[in-house]
Design a protein around this nucleic acid. Structure first.
Lengths: 250, 250
DNA sequence: CGCCTCATTGAGTTCTGTCAATCCCAGTGG
DNA sequence: CCACTGGGATTGACAGAACTCAATGAGGCG
């Protein structure tokens, strides 16, 4: 893996602003408030723990570049990834109010994160209700994504789950302009994909082979190539409605 | 089933207020604002759809009495329950900002719901930032509960999943005083439990039998009796941290 | 009293996991 | 320039957990 990223954002907050703007108009002043709230930008290497579960938090992190996962470890050594994040995602905004998160946030591949102190976020909730609602909204979309994962893992077959994951990540990356010609960075090992879908890496391997053989998508060396999005979506029973990416509702 | 409920709240907002008060001090004025925001209280019978997925929403519902489920239907006729709700839960507060929800909300047993118009909620976000943060907080706890369900379904065995569900519901009902001597109302069929755990009703039946035989808990005719909470928690690998029920953090 | 839904149990099937070997490839060092 | 190394990826054979199909039982309600 580790060829160069296909696309990258200039300023740390660009991805978030782009995503928020899809849902609702953002004033110049609001954009400035968000940009100003970033106190620090940090880089991480593959596998690094960015935020450890259970530890009291004073700031929340925004993913600028790369991909990260929310991962819960089980006593028997197994791991479950509850959500993947793409650039522009406010990864642990929920930590602002929960004070601690119960999972780890780990880097998949190389990653850049921008951090906002909770004091700044609190100030936003006190003085900028519209912006606060937008931030709240992003945490609700995360919850919707997690619900869809429950549906996937609970009721879909292994093939469907893997296909669904690829559809979802492809669509979310598309929303921030990180897909080019059906190709996008995907720095997950098959073990990671298994942890995200509730499968073993070996079975993930078999399912990826089937998706490849059926001409739907190829996952290889940190990249995904979507050959036939319609077919992939059909296999996955994928409907992007839960991502709430429609332009400017109401 | 359908013997009388063990306990009930007097005023519609009591359960919510009790739960919010666990997390943070609530002023008299804030309590009044919440109570005043309730426009209507409605009852529903078993199986009734309270809120249909995909439909634009103008109000959000608070569960006053009974239990409801968020359920997603799949094209093949299967169903997945993404979260169960107990009295005091703001069931579709996320609909306030999402404008529509992607799942149904269905009644399990007899149910009373109180509704708040979105205009009132919006007013709260504009004028009562502390209260708004508390409401936001409740949606974040829902998300944490959903993440734990992902972990359960993704990585725990059938027995563990069922045990975990009972632990969770027992703890959440306990928090609002609806457990008496290890006994609580639980108006789910084995099919419902299967839909909540990603199992078939038949397999749920076998797991319930094992929990009964092991002296952990008995589920029968709409009631759960917890015989040995420690044993049940040990089977389930249950740690209530994700419910964020600690008294007044910070 | 009989219907209907739900619960229970048994037998056989299948999907996914486990175990184990081999392959591939990028990075390293000689 | 090339052997070496180590983490993934791949494949095959087998095991096992959960599902499917089918029949029976139990309890509540009209």
């Amino acid at each position: 893996m580790a060829t160069e990223a296909l696309v990258r954002f200039e300023a740390p907050a660009d991805g978030l602003l782009a995503k928020l703007s899809v849902r609702d108009a953002l004033s110049i002043a609001e954009e400035a408030v968000l940009r100003a709230a970033i106190a620090e930008v940090t880089s991480y290497g593959p596998g690094e723990t960015i935020i450890a579960g259970g530890v009291p938090l004073e700031r929340s992190g925004l993913l600028v570049e790369g991909m990260v996962a929310r991962a819960s470890a089980l006593p028997n050594g197994q791991r479950q990834i509850t959500e993947l994040h793409v650039p522009g995602d406010f990864v642990d905004l929920h930590g602002f109010l929960l004070k601690r998160i119960e999972h780890d946030v780990i880097a998949l591949g190389r990653v850049r994160m921008a951090f906002m102190p909770h004091a700044a976020l609190r100030h936003i909730t006190e003085t900028a209700p519209h912006l606060a609602r937008l931030l709240w909204f992003t945490t609700l979309v995360d919850a919707a994504i997690q619900r869809e994962k429950i549906v996937s893992i609970g009721r879909r077959s292994a093939l469907e789950r893997v296909a669904h994951l690829l559809c979802e990540v492809g669509t979310r990356l598309d929303a921030v302009g990180l897909v080019r010609d059906g190709l996008f960075d995907f720095p997950l090992t098959q073990q990671d994909i298994g942890d995200a879908t509730g499968l073993t890496s070996i079975h993930v391997n078999r399912m990826l082979k089937r998706l490849r053989d059926e001409g739907a998508a190829t996952v290889r060396s940190g990249r995904v190539r979507l050959h036939d999005r319609a077919r992939l979506a059909a296999i996955a029973d994928f409907d992007p409605g839960y991502l709430y990416l429609e332009r400017r509702p109401r």
